[in-house]
Design a protein around this nucleic acid. Structure first.
Lengths: 231, 231
DNA sequence: CGCGAGCTTGACGTTGTTCAACTAGAGTGG
DNA sequence: CCACTCTAGTTGAACAACGTCAAGCTCGCG
């Protein structure tokens, strides 16, 4: 096994998953004891919307998408996740149901921690609860930006937002392999696959991005940001 | 002063604001001591997006809107609030900034509690923290529905959602005074004012709703729900 | 070499916005 | 009591944005 074999422990995840640092040693041990790790092939579903929440997931390798399954088989991607992300979901203390699905984009591995251990820590460890609250609030702010992007910007602005998001948050580079499909890009920006393709081409023709063999390179960040800001 | 004069106490709010029930008596006293109440005229701003969070608000009378100020002077209304709502905001533990604005739709009163008292209780009272977490998660789930409504449904579906929302959550009746303006209805459904008006007229012509002098009555809930579901 | 999934393109139709004009009703001052 | 104004609401026509459909393309893979 590579960097995250079955013999890894929650202590190791500390470096990556920030809110774990508020757990006590005993809690980390409890987390580690209840934990199991699973491998997923690209395309496989990790969490399915509408099913019960039994575990929270710490994503350990690969790339995955978190998306809401909406109407007419249309999905809305909320976020792309990379190793180090901890995914519970808003149903945790409410109805214990998944309100989104998560599926692997590339081959991935994920660690699962019993939801009851998580809840135990929330109840016994205020710092951890507060850290979780803070985390959820940050997510909330992100969602606000997404609301504005999706409802008030037109396609150029939304694609610009997506390209910047992938560059800044996911790949940490202004030149990266697209990895996600055109359909995913469309689901991320709430438009049709064809429209997403057209805007990409438009950006390419305008020398805002370079695009070959799915390798994207941002040539003109300023123009991209302007598209994002104009709307 | 009417039902909520300056001489009311936080204990009275217990009946209305559910998460207050997890506060201890001492905490309620502390909340009550730091508290002050303010009257607002229709249209006045209660919280302004982009300013510092100094207090959380318990809305005590009237009707108000929570909205994000987006691009080109367009607003997106996240929710309408009525007495009993407790409004903090996702910035609370993150950057201490308001990420939305709140303004009074009708003449209103609101109670303000020092943010530090609130944070103190979060830190000292796990049950309260968990209850807050649960509340925020519920909000999160609502937002997911809003995402789907706004990005995947067309205008009829969105207006239907808004009418149902006002009926079920705000006025608790299928016959109510619209109170909110057409512009507000448009901001709630992410469309232009003109489009909102046209859909209302369409619903009226189709005998789905009755509408005179801003008094709306739902005549055919089934059709309304079908519009909401078809998208 | 051929198959199939994902990608691309163009033509066309629909949805929703914009603009401008008009209306109704609620104050406001003479 | 009557203009006058101001704001919210309404309507229609023109237009832009976006989705749909259908066809063709590319490229990896068996």
């Amino acid at each position: 096994m590579t960097q995250n074999g079955d013999n890894c422990s929650c202590q190791e995840c500390l470096r990556k998953t920030s809110i774990f640092e508020y757990l006590t040693d005993e809690e980390l041990v409890a987390f580690n004891d209840s934990r199991y790790q699973t491998k997923y092939k690209a395309g496989e579903i990790i969490f399915k919307q509408g099913t019960a929440i039994t575990h929270i997931m710490s994503f350990t390798s690969g790339l995955a998408k978190v998306y809401i399954e909406g109407y007419n088989n249309r999905d809305l991607i909320l976020q792309i996740i990379k190793p180090g992300s901890l995914i519970g979901g808003p149903g945790v203390l409410v109805d214990n149901m998944h309100h989104f699905s998560v599926s692997a984009i590339t081959d991935s591995t994920a660690c699962f921690i019993d939801i009851n251990e998580y809840k135990k820590s929330l109840n016994n460890n205020t710092e951890f609860a507060i850290a979780s609250l803070k985390e959820i609030n940050s997510q909330h702010i992100e969602n606000f930006n997404k609301f504005i992007s999706l409802t008030q910007k037109q396609m150029q602005g939304r694609i610009a937002d997506a390209i910047i998001y992938l560059s800044d948050e996911i790949f940490n580079s202004n030149s990266y392999d697209m990895t996600i499909s055109r359909q995913d890009l469309a689901d991320l920006t709430a438009m049709s696959k064809e429209s997403a393709i057209r805007i990409l081409k438009e950006f390419k023709d305008d020398k805002i991005i370079q695009l070959n063999h799915n390798k994207i390179e941002i040539l003109n960040v300023d123009k991209l940001r302007r598209f994002s800001e104009i709307g």
